[in-house]
Structures are given as structure tokens and as C-alpha cells.
Amino acid sequence: MNLGTIFSLSTLLNTVNTSTIVILAALGCLMTDQAGIMCIGIDGMIIIGAFAGAMGSWLCGSWVMGLVFALAAGLLSGLFYGVLVIRYHSDEFIIGVAFNLFAQALTTFLLRTLIGQSGSFHPTTGEVVKIPVLQLGRVGDTQVQISIMVLLAWFLVLAMWVFLYKTPQGFWLHASGEHPESLRSVGRSPEKQRYFASLGCGLLCTLAGAYLSMGYLSTFTENMSASKGYVAVACVIFGRSNPLIVFFATLLFGFIEAAGLRMQGFIDPTLTATFPYVGTILMMVFLALRQRTRRGHRAAK
């Protein structure tokens, strides 16, 4: 096993591309976490975004429309989650898990019943138009190309950080999660902040999904989110809702996945497929152990 193959440029590029899905979804989840209603249904939102994006792109022959479809689906999803959790005070955990199963079933159903295909979407006429990719020339024998979504994702990470820590609105969002009554007592509705977070989450997660079906891969496949949504949630917990640390965690995840792909030459691919998931669990264990020692002597049993 040559370390050079693992730490190569193409691995780096793969890392960046893979992690983009997770980073966008994580940003969405992060918003709801700041607002105190952390959404674990983001896996479902990703699938919905993937489906809507692929459909929109195919139907209208343009990737822009694909994104529009995905974002519209995102608004609906975010609204759905928001209404159930905020207005009807449902348990966000149950709604999240149920929503993931719902989205999986719904998109599969629509593919099979409405479109008449199963497994994967293979348009007989037209195609799923992909999101443009920036070609940045060659380095050695690797073609360096990154999707514009990657750049958008990085920009959003920074924007989120600035929003949360440098603008009053970010403080309101945080207050609505940490101590909603304090916000209410100065005349601002925490519920509105939460709706804002829900919608934002929907938009960001469906954007991630759109990139999945229109960029990272080139069509919609049933269940294509492959639990990446849960990985994103783990990254948010790991990063304690700080966009920069969460970003780091998603890159770590992406790296493990990319390295795994690289190792498929000499390790069975189904085995390397487990690496990102094992890595995520190890990440969480590491975080928990560090927290424990930082708290020092645990006084309460």
C-alpha cells in the first residue's frame, strides 16, 4: 500500500467533492440545531432534493431548473418539518426518523409509479443536465476539476460563520435555541427564528441532494443518500454547531471515504465502503472521551 496513492491529488479532489454533499446538509442541520430543533430528517431532505433536482433538470433540460425544483422541494420540506415541530410541538426526533423513511418511500414510489422505472432513473429521451464543473487544468496526470457547488458550499460555510457570530440575526437564531424566552421577553418571536432555521435547513439539504444527483453522480438512484444525512448530523454534533469545526469534520469524513475509494485497488470495495461510517463513529467516540476528560473528575455518579 503506497501512501502516495492515498494522499494524492485525485484523492484530495474526491475528498472535496464527496464532502460537499455532507457540508451543505450539515449547514442546514446546524441551523436547526442553533434554533433548538435539530432536524435529523436531513437524509430524507437530501433524497428529495436529489429527486427533484434530477427531475427538474431532465424535464426542462437545464441544470438551473433542476436547482430551482430542488430548492422548491426544500422550502416545502422545511415548512413541513417546521409546522410539525414548531406549531404542533411534535417530537423532532420522531418526525426526523419518520421523515427519512417517508422521503425514501416517496421518491422510490414516484420513480416507480409515476415514471415507471425502478432502481435508477434512466431517461429514454433527454438527460439529466449536470451542474457545471470548473476545469482548472492538469497537474501531473490528474485533471483538476471542481464543481461550482463545491465553491458555493465553501462560501456558505464562511457566510454561515459570519452570520452566526457577526450579525445580530445570528445571535437571535442562537438565542431562540439556547433560551427562547429571553428572546420573547425583548419582543422577538423565537418561533419565527425556528421557521427561518427550518426553511434554511430544507433549502441547504435539498441543495446537497441536487448536487448528489446532478453533479457528484449523474442521475437519481433509489436511496442514494446512503445515510450521508446521518453523517452530517454526526458532524454537527462533533463540531458543536460551529460552522468551521463542522466543516473540518465533513472534510475528515470525505477524506476517509475518498481514501477508501483509492484503496479499492487492494482492499475489497465493500469493505472500504464501511470506512466512512466506522470513521464517523470513531469521531464521535473521540469527541465523547475528550469531553469526559475535560470535565475532569466526574463528581456525579
Binding site: 435529523i40 426526533f93 426518523v97 446512503a226 445515510s227 446521518y230 453523517v231 448530523v233 454526526a234 454534533i237 465502503a273 464501511t274 461510517y277 464517523t280 463513529i281 464521535m284 467516540v285 465523547a288
Partner: peptide, 12 residues
């Protein structure tokens, strides 16, 4: 550590 995340990841 949240069992929801660990159990789902362990499924995969």
C-alpha cells in the same frame, strides 16, 4: 453518544 446515529451507521 446518540444511539440513533450509531445504530444507523452500524447498519451500513
Amino acid at each position: 453518544i446518540s444511539e440513533v446515529i450509531t445504530t444507523i451507521l452500524m447498519n451500513s
